[in-house]
């Protein structure tokens, strides 16, 4: 059967029927589409993976942001400080999407958040930067923005060397909440103080004014996307000093014992016989 087929092809049989040439053409197109699609998908996947993009205030979670943003640039045009950059090919970031470079041009935290208000698709959602005012009416509140989180490198921060600086602290629009200055004893000299800045993630908007203000050559306080900057404790750790967190113990179902093949045995048994 197989030989016969090969024979008929080699024999130059012109019987490439209409049906057959249609199917061949279809297969060729599908194959070309698959090749193109794979290259295309690989390219996009590589570009999507850029992890340190700081989005405008009100941006929805990054994966949804990338899906929703049409790259129209209305947010960047709305920015009165021209701080928002539209990613160009070659910037290494998802092309056409808006981002901040805080060291160069941070977010000035406009009260009316014009960038988020301009977004036509909802990639920037004003609702995410709105909260109830004193009268209980939902209003834009830039302090609810979570562009990223400022992180301090204590090894290069001169305040932690013992030099009084406070540049980031003074620049912070949420001063005394997002950045506080802690008075520490300088153990090196034994008689001086260290006035060390500390960032508080529950108040930091990630505006980047601290990174912009930092006096070291390369900023020693810098904004990272929150998912990069923050860890996450497992559920079984409880903040004993936090009444609400402590309550989780009361709500817990009780002791949970996990049984594994090894735990069924006596410890003496497996430690002696199996080794580690």
């Amino acid at each position: 059967m197989r030989n016969e087929k090969r024979h008929s092809l080699e024999g130059g049989n012109p019987a490439l029927t209409e049906r057959r040439s249609f199917l061949l053409g279809l297969a060729r197109s599908a194959g070309a589409a698959a090749v193109g699609g794979l290259v295309w998908a690989g390219f996009i996947d590589g570009k999507k993976a850029y992890p340190t993009v700081l989005r405008p205030p009100g941006a929805v979670e990054e994966a949804r942001f990338l899906a929703k943003c049409t790259k129209c640039g209305l947010c960047a045009e709305a920015c009165p400080y021209d701080a928002l950059i539209m990613a160009k090919p070659g910037d290494g970031r998802p092309v056409g999407t808006p981002y901040f470079l805080m060291r160069e041009d941070p977010c000035r935290m406009c009260q009316d958040i014009p960038c988020a208000a301009e977004c036509p698709t909802g990639a920037l959602a004003p609702a995410l930067v709105s909260g109830p005012d004193d009268a209980g009416i939902q209003r834009l509140d830039i302090n609810l923005a979570r562009i990223g989180l400022a992180v301090i490198d204590r090894e290069t921060c001169i305040a932690y060397w013992g030099i009084q600086c406070e540049a980031c602290y003074r620049a912070c629009p949420v001063i005394d909440r997002a950045i506080t200055v802690e008075h520490l004893k300088n153990d090196r000299t034994g008689k001086h103080a260290i006035l060390g800045p500390v960032v508080h993630s529950e108040h930091c908007t990630g505006c980047g004014l601290c990174e912009h203000a930092c006096v070291t050559r390369k900023a020693s306080i810098f904004v990272l996307p929150r998912e990069l900057a923050l860890g996450e404790p497992s559920e079984h750790y409880v903040r004993g000093w936090d009444a609400a967190d402590e309550k989780r113990i009361e709500d817990a179902a009780g002791d949970v014992t996990t049984t594994t093949p090894r735990s069924k045995k006596d410890p003496l048994e497996y430690l002696n016989q199996e080794g580690f």
Partner: peptide, 10 residues
């Protein structure tokens, strides 16, 4: 498949 507007990216 990729969760982003594929043609808009290229």
């Amino acid at each position: 498949l990729l969760g982003v507007a594929a043609f808009e990216w290229i």
